[in-house]
Amino acid sequence: MSDFDFSVILDNLPFLIEGLGMTFLLTLLAIAGGLAIGTLLALARLSGFAPLAMVAAAYTNFFRSLPLILVIFWFYFLVPLILGRPVGGFYSVLVAFILFEAAYYSEIIRAGISSVRSGQVAAARALGMNYWQTMGDVVLPQAFRAMTPVLLTQAIILFQDTSLVYVVGLKDFLVSAELVANRDQRLVEMFTFAAAVYLVFCLLGSYAVRRLQQRFAT
């Protein structure tokens, strides 16, 4: 431990920050895409239209039964095959994350929607609101408020999970750290540093979640 070399971190800081940028970009895009598809899946599952609900349930259960790494491999292999040309790891990985996260988000959103009391739906219907108005103006705003802490927790998990792009070599924060570690033979420093950076961001995130929960509790 005595020869812990901080200079290797400082010297490579711009390179590492670039990797961190990729990690955040991937996280944000996957959250946005996952939320959008997840909301549609949740609405499909609660639609009361059996075939639609079954398809949505099958999708959710199927993706939740698979390891994320396998899903990443699947799309890394499939996306270029479907498009008929190589597209680079980023897009394949992004598709994998969005479709994978959508399954988890849809479960969270479904629980959130179910937590809104049925009387609220009856009241909106009694006022003459149609399905989309009832969902958009009455149910979803309440559901999303109730779900915010859980959605944020899922975002923290996703932030950590993006490190799995390591298996296809996409240059995110962890891969950048690993490249430096191997090139300069500074594995101890780089991996410890990487762990510390993830820890700080995730602790900040879970602190935010706790603050939100307290605010919603009062």
């Binding site: 009391r117 009856a122 909106a124 009455v138």
Partner: peptide, 11 residues
């Protein structure tokens, strides 16, 4: 229509 539990929209 007026409901037993009011059902005002809390948000």
């Amino acid at each position: 229509m007026v409901f037993q539990n009011f059902e005002l929209f809390p948000h």
